[in-house]
Amino acid sequence: MSGNGNAAATAEENSPKMRVIRVGTRKSQLARIQTDSVVATLKASYPGLQFEIIAMSTTGDKILDTALSKIGEKSLFTKELEHALEKNEVDLVVHSLKDLPTVLPPGFTIGAICKRENPHDAVVFHPKFVGKTLETLPEKSVVGTSSLRRAAQLQRKFPHLEFRSIRGNLNTRLRKLDEQQEFSAIILATAGLQRMGWHNRVGQILHPEECMYAVGQGALGVEVRAKDQDILDLVGVLHDPETLLRCIAERAFLRHLEGGCSVPVAVHTAMKDGQLYLTGGVWSLDGSDSIQETMQATIHVPAQHEDGPEDDPQLVGITARNIPRGPQLAAQNLGISLANLLLSKGAKNILDVARQLNDAH
C-alpha cells in the first residue's frame, strides 16, 4: 500500500501541473516587456503551470559599433537563445518575429505568432524639431536608422535628408537623439515604442507609400524545439490566425527572394473581405531603383483552434497545428507568387547589386 502511495506522490510531482516552463529572452527592456506579455497570456491559459524567465545577451546586443547589415552573420539576435533551447536550458524563446530568419536551424520551429501590433515605422524627432515631419525637416538634416530597408525607401522619398546608421537598443538610440546634436530624427518601429509606453515620442507614423515595413514587423514569434510536442501544444494558444497568415505570406515572399538583413526588402499586408493583399518591394541601397507589386488571394481566416493538420510540417519556419492547413498554404503560395513576379521584373539584379555594395563598404 505504502509503495503505491509513493508512486502516486511521484506521479503528482512529475505531472504537468508541477512543471516549471523556462522562457528565454534577450536582456533589453523591450525584450523583457514583450516576454512578460507572452508569459502573462500563458499564465492565464495555464494557471497550474509556473513560468521562469531567463534573460541573456546576444551577438546583436554586444556589437554596437557596426551596422547590422555589415556584421555579416545571420541570427544576430537569436543564436545564443537557440543555443540555450538546444541544450534544454529553456523550453521556449520569445523573439520579435522580424529577427527570426525565414529558414531556422534544424530542430527549431516557430510554435506561435502572437497578435500583431502596429507594424509601421515611426519617426521620433529631436526636441528642437518636435512638430515637424520628415518632409518639413531642414535641408541636409541627419536621420538615424539601423535599417537598409528604411534608408533606401526614405532616401527616395525625401532626397533633402541624409540617413546615417544608429545602433543600440531603444533606450540607447533615444538617448543619442536627445543628448547629442548629430541626429534631427530617428526611425523606429511603432510597436516597440508603444510597448515601452513611449507613445508621446511618436512624431509621425510612416504610411506604406512612404515606407513599407519589415517582414514580420510588429509581431512576436515564440520559438521552440520542433519535436517538443508538449510545448508546441502549450504555445499553440498564442497563435493569432490573421497575423499568422499575413506573416506566412510575408516570410514566403522574403524567403523566395532570398532577402535578408543586408538587402532592402519591404512588405505591406492587409486582410479585407476574405482577401489577403500582399505588397512587396525591393530597392537599391540608395533607393534610386525599385520594383513594387501587389497581389491578392482569397483566404478564409479560420477561428482559433479549428482542428489543424496533425502532421505539422513547417511552413517558412512556422508550425501551427491548430490552424487549418489550406489557408496557410494559400498564404505561402501568395508570397511565392509575388516573389516570382518581382524576380521576373529584375528584382534579383537589384538585390545582387545591393548585396555587393553593402559587402564592399
Rank of each mutant, 00 (worst) to 15 (best):
V20S: 15
R22H: 15
V23C: 05
V23P: 00
R26F: 00
S28D: 00
Q29V: 07
Q29C: 14
L30E: 01
A31R: 00
A31H: 00
A31E: 00
I33F: 06
D36Y: 10
D36I: 07
D36H: 13
S37P: 06
V38Y: 02
V38M: 07
V39C: 10
A40M: 13
A40H: 08
A40D: 11
A40I: 08
L42I: 10
A44N: 13
S45Y: 13
P47R: 11
L49E: 00
I53Q: 07
I54Y: 12
T58L: 05
T58K: 02
T58E: 11
T58W: 00
G60Y: 02
K62A: 11
L64S: 06
D65C: 05
A67R: 14
A67K: 15
A67L: 09
I71Y: 11
E73A: 09
K74W: 03
K74Y: 07
L76S: 11
L76W: 09
F77T: 02
F77C: 04
T78Y: 06
K79W: 11
L81Y: 04
E82N: 09
H83T: 12
H83R: 13
A84G: 08
A84H: 08
A84T: 12
K87R: 12
N88W: 13
V90K: 01
D91N: 13
D91T: 03
L92Q: 04
H95T: 14
H95D: 04
S96C: 07
L97K: 04
K98F: 00
K98H: 02
D99L: 03
L100N: 02
P106A: 12
I110D: 04
G111D: 03
G111H: 00
A112K: 01
I113F: 00
C114W: 09
K115H: 08
E117N: 06
N118V: 12
N118Q: 09
P119F: 10
D121N: 03
A122V: 13
A122K: 04
V123Q: 03
V124P: 03
V124T: 06
F125N: 09
H126M: 07
P127S: 10
K128C: 09
F129M: 15
V130E: 15
V130Q: 11
T133C: 12
T133S: 10
T133W: 09
E135A: 14
E135F: 11
T136W: 13
T136H: 12
L137M: 11
E139R: 08
K140L: 11
S141G: 11
V142R: 12
V143L: 11
S147Y: 01
R150I: 02
R150H: 05
A151M: 03
A152L: 13
R156F: 05
K157N: 13
P159F: 09
P159D: 07
H160T: 14
E162Y: 15
E162D: 11
E162P: 00
F163G: 09
F163Q: 10
R164H: 13
S165Y: 10
S165K: 05
S165C: 12
R167H: 07
R175K: 12
R175D: 07
K176T: 11
Q181E: 14
L188G: 09
A189K: 05
A189V: 02
A189N: 03
T190E: 04
T190Q: 15
A191T: 08
G192S: 10
G192A: 06
L193M: 14
L193K: 00
L193E: 03
R195S: 04
M196A: 12
W198I: 07
W198L: 12
N200T: 13
V202P: 15
V202K: 07
V202L: 12
Q204G: 07
I205S: 06
E209L: 05
E209T: 03
C211T: 04
C211W: 07
M212W: 02
M212I: 15
A214K: 03
A214F: 05
V215P: 07
Q217N: 00
A219T: 06
A219V: 13
A219N: 00
L220I: 01
L220G: 03
G221Y: 04
G221F: 03
G221W: 02
E223S: 03
V224C: 13
R225I: 05
R225P: 14
K227A: 15
K227E: 15
D228Q: 15
Q229N: 13
Q229Y: 14
L232R: 04
D233I: 09
L234C: 12
V235K: 01
V235Y: 04
G236D: 15
G236Y: 00
V237Q: 04
L238F: 01
T243E: 05
L244V: 09
L244K: 00
I248G: 00
A249V: 07
E250L: 02
R251W: 10
A252D: 07
F253H: 05
E258K: 14
C261E: 03
S262M: 00
V263A: 15
V263K: 15
V263W: 03
P264Q: 10
A266V: 15
V267D: 00
V267L: 11
V267W: 02
G274H: 05
Q275P: 08
L276R: 03
Y277K: 04
L278C: 12
T279R: 06
G280R: 05
V282C: 07
V282A: 09
V282Q: 04
L285F: 13
M295W: 09
Q296K: 12
I299D: 13
V301I: 12
V301P: 00
P302S: 06
P302D: 12
A303R: 13
A303L: 15
E306L: 14
D307H: 15
D307V: 08
G308S: 09
P309M: 00
E310Y: 03
D312A: 12
P313N: 08
Q314M: 01
V316P: 06
G317K: 00
I318T: 06
I318Y: 10
R321D: 04
R321V: 03
R321I: 10
R321K: 15
R325W: 13
G326Y: 12
G326Q: 01
Q328W: 14
L329R: 15
A330R: 15
Q332N: 08
Q332E: 08
Q332I: 00
G335V: 01
G335T: 04
S337F: 00
L343G: 10
L343A: 08
K345I: 13
K345C: 05
G346C: 15
G346N: 06
K348V: 00
N349T: 13
N349W: 15
D352M: 09
D352A: 13
D352E: 06
D352S: 10
A354D: 15
L357K: 10
N358D: 00
D359R: 15
D359E: 09
